[in-house]
Write a protein that binds this DNA or RNA. Sequence first.
DNA 1: AGGCGCTTGTGAAGACGTGCACAAATCGCG
DNA 2: CGCGATTTGTGCACGTCTTCACAAGCGCCT
Lengths: 256, 256
Amino acid sequence: MSQHRHPGAPGRAGAVPALPDLPEATVARLPEYLRALHQLAEAGHETISSEGLATAAGVNSAKLRKDLSHLGSYGTRGVGYDVALLVDQIEFVLGLTQRRGVALVGIGNLGHALAGYAGFASRGFRVAALFDADPARVGEEINGLIVRHVDELPRAAVEESIAIGVIATPAAAAQRVADQLVAAGVTSILNFAPCVLSVPEGVDVRKVDLAIELQILSFHEHRKASLTALPATGGAGFTALPGGLAAPGTQEAVGT
Amino acid sequence: MSQHRHPGAPGRAGAVPALPDLPEATVARLPEYLRALHQLAEAGHETISSEGLATAAGVNSAKLRKDLSHLGSYGTRGVGYDVALLVDQIEFVLGLTQRRGVALVGIGNLGHALAGYAGFASRGFRVAALFDADPARVGEEINGLIVRHVDELPRAAVEESIAIGVIATPAAAAQRVADQLVAAGVTSILNFAPCVLSVPEGVDVRKVDLAIELQILSFHEHRKASLTALPATGGAGFTALPGGLAAPGTQEAVGT
DNA sequence: AGGCGCTTGTGAAGACGTGCACAAATCGCG
DNA sequence: CGCGATTTGTGCACGTCTTCACAAGCGCCT
Ligand SMILES: NC(=O)c1ccc[n+]([C@@H]2O[C@H](COP(=O)([O-])OP(=O)(O)OC[C@H]3O[C@@H](n4cnc5c(N)ncnc54)[C@H](O)[C@@H]3O)[C@@H](O)[C@H]2O)c1
Ligand SMILES: NC(=O)c1ccc[n+]([C@@H]2O[C@H](COP(=O)([O-])OP(=O)(O)OC[C@H]3O[C@@H](n4cnc5c(N)ncnc54)[C@H](O)[C@@H]3O)[C@@H](O)[C@H]2O)c1
């Protein structure tokens, strides 16, 4: 919560402490650690071992320690990591000390769900503006925000200091919207439309495509089926598990 | 569309053609190739070069060729790939020749959007059942489907031959729902709740967390800001691009 | 003060993924 | 029929990521 004073990498003492350039894989995991830490803090933990945090975040403990080592040492040997300190540190590195403004473009089926999602606000963001191209939707109020016409994007982007644009329009409109966001000065885009966006250098795009996720699951389902088809076991596919992950609930084989 | 006859890996001629075990990174890209191929087919292409397909899918052409080589050779040197054939081939490998049943659990804000999403049906899936724990929601009809109580999951899972479960409940309920899905015989889960699920061996879980995506973008935003802060260039940050990606739209520097 | 148990931080090795660069294969054309 | 243009498939080198294993550090208890 307090503006955490970055201790700085060895030898660096500038006004803006240069971020250590983290491996991309590490960056992708930091948010998960952050979520786990918040959960642990709420449960009353003041410190947590790498083993405990790794379990809460669903990763290997060695990986976690190496990840954290990249942001400078914050653990105490024999004890673990100070939860509050680590939260501050990760939030700083992720740039969450300032609450970044998010603009949603395309307030349809999905856009409505996103506009009403509390998880943005609770995890460091501020949904600052909603846009749509459909005149019928413009003017609608959702969660205290009025849907504006997408042409107002440039003005609104500056007024509301938009840092991130979220595209939830049909794929056919996505590239055009991306161009508009870029023209308005937005340099980070989260794209829900199933298409490839081309953007100038310096602009980051991340994509979320549910159908892709399902298709990856489908592949593994297919593979599992073709494997269990080879050994002609009648009904009990893999009843006895080789152990390992603790299964909290009841479990059954696929074949019923 | 037609049940494509798999030519088989060299030496393998079983009834169920054993899937070549693809690198996980390749599997994750196949759906993207598939989407690009459908798009190209609609545009009238009968064949496509690796270069063309790679551009449409947003990847490197060498990577694409290597990926495709893993599923057996399907290109013609000097010509390219047969679009229709490649579509069949990828759909087969991903297990999309059978339309897999998907169950949605948690028909709230997000669940409603998912239930009404046409992208599932058009890309190989069939939303077969909707579940919620809230009695007030049970009975509601969405897109021709009635919301059932989550306790009916075991029966419905068999009746509707559910292959994949999608969790869109609050995080607090997600583990319990996952256990119920597993108990009902579901071996693939897509989780939207921001929490770690523990499941028995043999069950695949994929997670989609929007806040994580935003936080990764935030990191890069933070890094970009700390970099442009060092060199005291007035306004024109990166006006001249070093070439490479074609920028279709207007572009501006971050600082405005 | 000293020893003991626990935990971090990291070197090193291995697995994995990427991209270049080019030989081999195919087509179209003269 | 032969040749050149084109494009695939892949060997190889490189970089990134993961995991193991253990020395060094820290706190606590005696
Ligand atoms: N609904 C889902 O659950 C879901 C899931 C995954 C992905 N998606 C993807 O998200 C996107 C939106 O899905 P949806 O179901 O909300 O569609 P939708 O048709 O309900 O909503 C699209 C909205 O975008 C607006 N729009 C169209 N062109 C625009 C433009 N140029 N500028 C601004 N707004 C514009 C439309 O007016 C409409 O309100 C699609 O690309 C879809 O594939 C949706
Ligand atoms: N809304 C979004 O845009 C969005 C975006 C990203 C992630 N999420 C995540 O998706 C999940 C759902 O979000 P939401 O906004 O739809 O929440 P919501 O509260 O609107 O909906 C949750 C639904 O789950 C149902 N539910 C609760 N316990 C259940 C149980 N044990 N079994 C079956 N159903 C149960 C509730 O009755 C409710 O209908 C949350 O975990 C949220 O963090 C939502």
